[in-house]
């Protein structure tokens, strides 16, 4: 497959270099929100939306920064954009589904400090993706986050019925599961050819 093609970039972000399971980004919400499928998938959707907005904005900002040769402001401006995008999503969810808003709780505003989103914006800049490539990348990255989150939630719901040793607190066993899931995702490494 052509490494610049949109399909490759999308699949790469979705499966091969999955943000959570291969690059360790966005672990806090991954562990925090993945105990129920009911909260996992809306959280995933929220992240996808923020990713798309952040990706488009980051692309535009980067052009400006390069034009004025002030790349050292990249980090600060990206963070500001992501924070505003999160605010937008937060207000939308609060308006349309107060129940969901309460379920997601503290993790919704914390999407701002979700390293998956800043990581995605930085990676797309470093890899010098074009506009459409950036879109494909952010869609894949967000989708990958959601995929990992929902799979993990499914596993953890099953785990509630299992007999886990006392010392393995919920986080410890969750990381063990994540390790196995990550091992499974390594199987996609050959997909790029």
């Amino acid at each position: 497959m052509d490494h610049d093609s949109l399909m490759f970039i999308f699949l790469n972000a979705l499966l091969i270099n999955n943000l959570v399971l291969a690059l360790f980004l966005g672990l806090c919400p991954f562990v925090g929100v993945s105990s129920k499928i009911n909260t996992a998938w809306p959280m995933g959707l929220a992240v996808i939306v923020v990713m798309l907005v952040a990706s488009v904005c980051a692309y535009g900002i980067n052009i400006l920064l390069v034009h004025f040769e002030i790349e050292y402001l990249r980090l600060i401006s990206y963070i500001a954009v992501i924070a505003s995008a999160v605010q937008l999503v937060e207000m939308t969810i609060k308006k349309f589904s107060p129940t969901l808003f309460r379920l997601l709780g503290i993790y919704l505003p914390l999407i701002t400090t979700n390293c998956a989103i800043l990581g995605m914006a930085l990676f797309q800049t470093f890899d010098e993706y074009s506009f459409t490539q950036s879109l494909a990348y952010s869609l894949g990255a967000g989708g990958g986050f959601m995929l990992a989150l929902v799979l993990m939630a499914g596993l953890r719901e099953r785990l509630e019925l299992a007999n886990v040793p006392d010392v393995a607190t919920s986080a410890a066993i969750a990381f063990m599961l994540a390790g196995l899931l990550s091992l499974a995702f390594m199987g996609f490494a050959g997909l790029g050819g």
């Binding site: 360790f24 410890a172 063990m176 390594m186």
Partner: peptide
């Protein structure tokens, strides 16, 4: 590789909890 990170962290968490 990535899975090792998760597994090692998980084992340290168990140790600390114990």
């Amino acid at each position: 590789l990535p899975p090792g990170g998760f597994i090692v962290l998980s084992l340290w968490l168990v140790l600390f909890a114990a």
